[in-house]
Design a protein around this nucleic acid. Sequence first.
DNA 1: AAAATACAATTTGCATACAATAGAAATTTC
DNA 2: GAAATTTCTATTGTATGCAAATTGTATTTT
Lengths: 253, 253
Amino acid sequence: MQIVFYLLLKIALERQMTDTGKARKIKLFQELKTDILTLGLQPGADLDEASLSERHGLSRTPLREVLRELAGEGYVELRDNRGARVSDMSFTTLREFFQAAPMIYGAILQLAALNRTQAQIDELKSAQNDFVSALRKGSVAERTLANNRFHELTGEMAGNVYLLPSFKRLLIDHARIGMTFYRPMNNEMADKLSEASLQHDAIISAIEAMDDQQAVELAEKHWNLSRGQIELFVTPSGIEASLGSVSRPPKTA
Amino acid sequence: MQIVFYLLLKIALERQMTDTGKARKIKLFQELKTDILTLGLQPGADLDEASLSERHGLSRTPLREVLRELAGEGYVELRDNRGARVSDMSFTTLREFFQAAPMIYGAILQLAALNRTQAQIDELKSAQNDFVSALRKGSVAERTLANNRFHELTGEMAGNVYLLPSFKRLLIDHARIGMTFYRPMNNEMADKLSEASLQHDAIISAIEAMDDQQAVELAEKHWNLSRGQIELFVTPSGIEASLGSVSRPPKTA
DNA sequence: AAAATACAATTTGCATACAATAGAAATTTC
DNA sequence: GAAATTTCTATTGTATGCAAATTGTATTTT
């Protein structure tokens, strides 16, 4: 009987430590982020407050605050008297993405090389290890998240509060676009993935050596590789069979 | 007697139209923004939820949501279990500001020239009119806000969701720094203000002509002018009197 | 008297209840 | 039967009360 009480007490204490309101809030925050980054929640998807709050054991008040914070970082969009929805992507935004990314990425890596601390270097190396093992044996989502984490760290290293908002916004959509091309469909795409990993190593070296010019060059190379991956996915080599061989459902209505 | 009832009804209806919850929320949002931009609320100032909500006739729940949104745009910072405070500025952030601003400003004006619509041009001209009249007969805060509005419009013209977050963040601190140098203390500073106004006109012309290269050049010139104004304020010409002539209070404690 | 601790007051965080709004469904009108 | 209007339902927005946490103050201890 005493043991039962002891167990109950222990559970209660652990609950207080690990499952307090704040912890649930942070957990929800992270889960929504990763779900959005990995397309578990697709662009444009509606987020229902009631079901979300119930599913995560939070009342709607703190949930709504989480949604506001996510909106601030660009993960979701809020519509008046309508639900929140996952930030949308379109041809237009894709074009804007290609316009903005090279410049910001270059600036971030340059500043990272100039401002990094040793502790940050160690973190970056650790993140790169995770990325490599994700490439070897991880899922598409794990690869995307590991790559995202690597670049987030370079953003922290740059340590410029004015550049960071745009950089983070870019990383969100880079991850979502990447969810397609981190699913290699032929040898060419797989090769580019390992090349990306090698570039990460080079980026780490440049940053550690505080060689900002080298960092800028690597940023451009890394961006071009990424760009090539996207193009490979968007414009694949043509299908050999004629279109007539694709079965179509008969017209019924 | 009937007239009294009519008036009461009218007031009630108007109240519903103009002073509904949402309107109060938007108003609070705007007021906090302008107060922060014009240093009515100084960097680092604590924001008390209770007094703010009472003063604006809103309960704490929507107020807290407003604070979250302001935090997302970089106006305030939220600390756990502590109050929100106005985003701080320091030597470090000032340095970061000078690093990031030229690049972003150039990119924004270039894209503005490429993407602007005629309606936006008209708005920009109107904003420039307001700026000119603020220079002639407005307060320091009015000048700052008018200048801020002008540049916000160029940001809208650029229409790039990835660049906008950083640009807006820069504008916040540019306005706050500007609150010092839009208080001209000698002829040299006053001259630079009218020069800024002329540059605005040139910027409008370049954007209207969709001359993006010209827009980039003007962005650099405009930035250099702004930089010069800041330097004039930070490092003024020395005081002629000797330090000994400055009266000091006698040591009492 | 200085440091540490306990307590009280203030402030933030969360849950619930209620109000307002938007979208869908049903009814009426032509 | 189609269009417009009204009613209803589902969902978002706000207010209030209470719980948790922080900070400042008073008390105790050394």
